[in-house]
């Protein structure tokens, strides 16, 4: 079948090669049709949150691997103050103008726990961390930004009711609930994940999410929720604004 060389009379050789060529083209044709069919299925199968479900399965699988591998030692590099660049305030969903920062309170809740409210001073009383990291937009651009805030891990240690097991997810939403993100607990508790109230050593501006925003360098910008209104610890996989529009729910870096 796969002899290296077959020596034959010219006519026979031509005949044999012709048969083999026809068979190879037939096999190739069938393979091509099968490939096209597979592609149609992969791209046209029923959508889950705007992405065909077979691709959603693979994204979930990718996320599972990334989540299993993620550790506190996996960090975005740090930069020096001179390397800080301009950060585009890319989105304003959830940043409606009917908002009074002086009236702001942070609602915290968890499965089976009555919600309670915190003042900004409750959060800023936590140990302040400063870091200069790359902010990666899912669109592809990135900026180097200096942030100041409290670790989400410190916040959780301080305010999550003691003696209870932490649920698997965290959900954060703007006060108007127009923009919301879901996070896996491991990424939320990552040492570079901050509840930030300072950007470039100044208080956050409204367009960057004053009075308090999420900074999570191990996720794309879409997860870095501005103007946090509520935080919920939950065992139910939370909804996510951009994941519902076709993007990966995990969106980890």
């Amino acid at each position: 079948m796969s002899e290296r060389e077959i020596e034959l009379a010219s006519a026979e050789a031509k005949g044999l090669l012709g048969r083999r060529t026809r068979r190879a083209f037939l096999t190739g044709g069938i393979a091509a049709v099968a490939g096209l069919g597979a592609y149609e299925w992969l791209t046209k199968a029923g959508a889950e949150d705007d992405t065909p479900w077979p691709q959603r399965r693979v994204l979930a699988w990718n996320a599972k691997i990334a989540h299993a591998y993620l550790s506190d030692g996996h960090q975005m590099p740090s930069y020096s103050p001179s390397q800080v660049t301009y950060l585009k305030p890319n989105g304003d969903v959830g940043l409606g103008s009917d908002f009074d920062a002086s009236d702001w309170k942070l609602k915290v809740s968890a499965d089976g726990i009555a919600p309670f409210h915190l003042q900004l001073s409750d959060v800023t009383a936590l140990p302040r961390r400063r870091m200069i990291t790359r902010f990666c937009c899912i669109e592809g651009w990135s900026s180097i930004v200096s942030w100041g805030g409290a670790r989400f891990a410190d916040f959780t240690k301080k305010f999550f009711p003691p003696g209870r097991e932490l649920p698997r997810f965290v959900y954060l939403a703007t006060p108007d609930e127009e923009y919301y993100v879901g996070l896996d607990l491991k990424s939320a508790l990552h040492p570079q994940t901050l509840l930030a109230w300072e950007q470039n050593e100044k208080p956050l501006t409204a367009e960057h999410g004053a009075p308090l925003r999420l900074v999570i360098p191990v996720k794309y910008g879409i997860k870095n929720l501005k103007r946090i209104g509520s935080i919920r610890y939950t065992n139910q996989k939370p909804g996510d604004y951009w994941a519902e529009q076709g993007y990966d729910w995990f969106a980890g870096l």
Binding site: R4, L17, G28, A31
Partner: peptide, 26 residues
């Protein structure tokens, strides 16, 4: 006389033709 000479191994042909649409889609 003529010879049929095996030039491209079967597996290599498969790898090549599978790679082509995959790379195109990437």
């Amino acid at each position: 006389m003529a010879k049929l000479k095996l030039k491209h191994l079967r597996a290599v042909r498969w790898f090549h033709w599978i790679n082509f649409p995959l790379l195109a889609l990437m």
